[in-house]
Structures are given as C-alpha cells and as structure tokens.
Design a protein around this nucleic acid. Sequence first.
DNA 1: TTATATGATTAGAAGATTCTAATATAAGAT
DNA 2: ATCTTATATTAGAATCTTCTAATCATATAA
Lengths: 118, 118
Amino acid sequence: MDPDRAYEWAELLKAFAHPTRLQILAELGKGTRCVTDMEDILPVTQVNISQHLTVLRNAKLVDFAQDGAVRCYYLSRPKLVEGVLTLLSADHPVLRKTKEQIDREKARSGKERVAVRA
Amino acid sequence: MDPDRAYEWAELLKAFAHPTRLQILAELGKGTRCVTDMEDILPVTQVNISQHLTVLRNAKLVDFAQDGAVRCYYLSRPKLVEGVLTLLSADHPVLRKTKEQIDREKARSGKERVAVRA
DNA sequence: TTATATGATTAGAAGATTCTAATATAAGAT
DNA sequence: ATCTTATATTAGAATCTTCTAATCATATAA
C-alpha cells in the first residue's frame, strides 16, 4: 500500500474512531438530523456534538443543509459509513494458526504457483 | 447504537487508524510475514513495528505463530481487515443535498409510512 | 559459551485529541 | 430592539498516542 494512501485512509478512519462520532453516524444512517435531535439521544453537551460534527465534516463523512436557524445534517458518503457499520456489526471469529498450518499454507501456495507455470 | 458497542467499535477502529498499521495489515493480507519482512518494506524502525504489532495484537486483528526465533504474523480476522481495506479503496462520491431535497425525502418516507398503514 | 539475529519492553519527550467553560453568531419570535 | 433558540468557536487543561533511545530476552550459530 502506498504511504500517501495509507495516510489518507488513516485520517478517514480516525474520524470514525470515536464512540460519540460512531453514534452520530449511526443516527444519521436513519435519516437527516439536526443538532438538537442528537442532543436528545446522546449524553454529551451541544458544544461537544458540534465539535464532533466538525471532525466528521472535515473528513467529508457528513454535511448539512441550512434550514433557518437549524442545520439538517446528513451522511455525505452513506455507502461508506453504512459499509463500515455493517462490517463492524458482523461476527468475525478470531483465528488461531500454528506454525504447522502456516507451513502447509506456504507449501500449498508454492504448489499452485508451480502448477500455473507447468 | 448502544454506547458499549460504540466504545468497543471505536477501540477497534483506532487500531486501524494509523498509516503504518494500515500498511502492516495490507501486507499481512498478502500472507504471513515476520517482523524483518516488514522492516524491509516500511520506512520505520524495528522497535516501532513491534509497537504497532502490539497494538494490532491487542485489538485482535493479528496474531503470530512462533518459529524458532522468528514470529510469523498473520491476520486473525482476515474478513474484517480485508473488508475495511476494500471499502476504503472503493470510490465513494461525496453527496450534497439542498434543504429542498431533504424535504422531499421526508415527504416520501412520510407517504410510505401512510401507505403501509392504509 | 560467546556472538549474532530476531523481536519485545520501557521511559520519557513531543505531539495530538478530547472535553469543559466561556463566549460568539445568526435566525426567528415578541 | 430584545429575547430566545440553534449552533459554532475559542482557549486551555487533562489525557492519550506516538516516536526515539536504551535495554532486554531468547534462539540459534560459531
């Protein structure tokens, strides 16, 4: 993976990587919400929600449309956000491999390579 | 989203959210690697690689099998890791909505709800 | 058993993130 | 005009993360 892409992706993932921000994203997955809607749901201050929304906005994960004094926030990349949340909610059993399994895997991929050549 | 889950997922995403760790994960996606293999690829010190591997290990994203003095690292949740990398590499155009679009969306979902009741 | 290779740990400085308190801004209501 | 409602900004303390330097541990080779 090239380092620029790694850096860029890490920045994006950092925006996801906070409990409050994940909850905001999940809520916006259900539909447009304004800041006071989120205040009703999340146990954090208005100021803090605004700050997290700024982080999400900088990451281009959310944006808003102004409606009078109210800002209607929405997901600007819903497929990305929903994809991440779906992946996280799936069950991913933790594998364990022995040295022997790894050796066998290497042997197998070696054979395949030979087979392709032959 | 319940707060415990949000916290847990945020912890997991933090493990992903570093350029060097993403590069390690991408490399392990290609197959088992030991620490010196990674030293050859990444422009960081052995110590730093070990530290990042510890973070990844604590997040249960990688594990290793010992082979003499060498540790063969592998992805312990390859579907999860590859899923995240695949999502990130896909193109996700950034949407923009006007207040009017949002109003129309709300009207539509309202109608749907009424239709179900009728 | 001494040397070499592989990899981990620890301490601490530097930097980034997060939260709170105070304040600001802008729209709509009175 | 003033008040209220909705939301953002700023400053700074507290905390967390990351990197470097030094050191340790273990396995194998000489």
